[in-house]
Nucleic acid binder design. Structure first.
Lengths: 224, 224
DNA sequence: GTCTATATGACGATAGAC
DNA sequence: GTCTATCGTCATATAGAC
């Protein structure tokens, strides 16, 4: 009898990866519509035209699926932040500009990806804890953001009497407050129309006045 | 045969109310342990020593239970805020003191009631929308908080060129940012040990400097 | 009025046929 | 790799004992 020739390992793996991507994409769709906790294996299978057990070939459990989604989201926000001027080495911006730059990028990403935001920044899934691997991009983001603050400090743009960690913490509080208020109270408004995102510029101005180095320009403070 | 005399309506209703309170208390316990979405009718019944269907005598559905919890939580936070100096008429505080007072009270309540906080400020339950009745205390809280800002404005403690609504929005952003960061990243630390709650005083100071009326004391500006 | 007993359908998950 | 069959648990609903 005729035997179908086996597909090459490369092709099989590529096809498998395509299916995994399809699952993740549909999962994000469902989470966006129903909330993160509203995701169900059955609904994914229904939309893919397969039976629920078939999904267990790609993900051993629902939490493993959440883990893959967490990692994907963390990579996405990290990439979005790396693309900002403030994150890419050449920063000639003022303190206020740099703060507004990173704040805007973070808030914009969060509102553009509300499902990922809920999964990453809140804990809506009872039993789920992200694995170390899934969390790693988020750790890198924290490190990079801290490095930005340290860079501002090195350039003399920050008050010397305040530790960089405090500046990081406080700007993080403000930015996450904007995200949290906008997502909770008016998630449909988006970044450009958001009544809370509109607070960002004034917040950056206030923050820069408070934590910025007053007067003294930072250029050429070498020995006279 | 002996017939048990029927309990008086008053007694019956009191007993019913006690049971409802017990259900709500246990529900809060479970939500605190497992997260808001982790609440289940079966677990409540198990802890009460009854069968799940018995609970439907008191609540017609799980969402009705969430609704009662929402209302209870909203009443609780409203009461906590009403107890602050800033909310109770006699406010002789400075702008910074008043802001810190309300911010501290709100953050403290939120950290003391993490389950209610998730239910009230985020939307962790897929199908649930609070009823108007359940939401009413939250509306009152917003009105009262806005009135506090207006009162500060009337006393001349706020910059006249900034609308009161903006001051309300921005202080809300900061306070909710503290809550969100503390609950998401270190929920066990509590108010007094919290690494993010520690940011509140400096935030109030920064905020008061930025939005406060500079110099000019507000006392006796009548005709000379 | 309050409970138990019981049933339905959805869910996450596993075993095994093909 | 996908299916059917099945399990245990969940929210929910109804019937009926007491």
């Amino acid at each position: 009898m005729a035997t179908r020739s086996a597909p090459s390992p490369g092709r099989r793996q590529r096809r498998r990866q395509e299916t995994i991507e399809e699952v993740l994409g549909i999962a994000v769709e469902i989470m966006t519509e129903q909330g993160v906790a509203g995701l169900s294996i059955g609904e994914i299978a229904r939309r893919m035209g397969i039976r629920p057990p078939s999904l267990y070939v790609y993900f051993p459990s629902k939490n493993a699926l959440y883990d893959a989604l967490f990692e994907r989201g963390a990579q996405s926000v990290l990439a979005a932040m790396e693309a900002t001027d403030a994150f890419s080495g050449t920063d000639e911006a003022t303190l206020e500009e740099a703060l507004l730059d990173v704040g805007r990028a973070f808030v914009r990403w969060s509102l553009d990806h509300p499902a990922y935001s809920q999964l990453l920044w809140w804990r809506p899934v009872p039993g789920f804890q992200p694995s170390e691997q899934a969390y790693e991009p988020a750790v890198r983001l924290t490190e990079r953001a801290n490095a930005v603050i340290t860079g501002l400090q090195r350039r003399g743009l920050l008050r010397p009497d305040v530790p960089a960690g405090q500046v990081y913490r406080d700007w993080t509080v403000i930015v996450s407050g904007v995200v949290s208020q906008q997502l909770a109270n008016a998630p449909g408004e988006g970044f450009d129309q958001g009544r809370f995102t509109a607070a960002l510029p004034e917040m950056a101005s206030m923050f820069a006045r408070h934590y910025g180095q007053p007067e003294t320009a930072s250029h050429e403070e070498g020995p006279s």
